[in-house]
């Protein structure tokens, strides 16, 4: 870590990192505590949307200041993760609907 960071900046970065981690943790706990698959599918997107966004923002601010030039490659990770996770979740949801219908679970049918 760099030694001579201004106080207000380290507070800002700390707040962003802790809040981001808290939101991600809430999502992960949701994965454990919610009772069925279709509720649990909402949990991972907390980490990829706001939780991850805040941590990556903190990282971008920190490296931009310590290197004295804008560092925005965090933006690439954010864009990639926010776009790809919904794709995975949609595929997973369709697979799950398909399997539940085959086994006669209580899910909405196709085209009725």
């Amino acid at each position: 870590m760099i030694e001579d960071l201004p106080l207000w900046l380290s507070i800002l970065i700390s707040a962003l990192v802790v809040l981001g981690a808290l939101i991600t943790l809430a999502g992960c706990f949701g994965l454990v505590r919610l009772e069925n698959f279709y509720l649990r599918i909402h949990a991972p997107t907390m980490g990829t949307s706001m939780g991850g966004g805040l941590i990556l923002l903190a990282s971008a601010i920190y490296f931009s200041l310590t290197n004295e030039r804008p560092i925005i490659h965090e933006l690439a990770i954010f864009a990639f993760v926010t776009i790809t996770t919904p794709v995975t979740l949609m595929l997973l949801a369709r697979a799950s609907l398909f399997r539940d219908r085959v086994e006669g679970e209580d899910v909405p049918g196709r085209g009725e």
Partner: peptide
């Protein structure tokens, strides 16, 4: 001082992420 704040908050965040994992 400011290094301490960053140090501890990063530790807290890493513990939370570890629990999440």
């Amino acid at each position: 001082m400011s290094v301490d704040i960053l140090h501890w908050s990063l530790l807290i965040a890493q513990i939370m992420l570890g629990l999440g994992m």
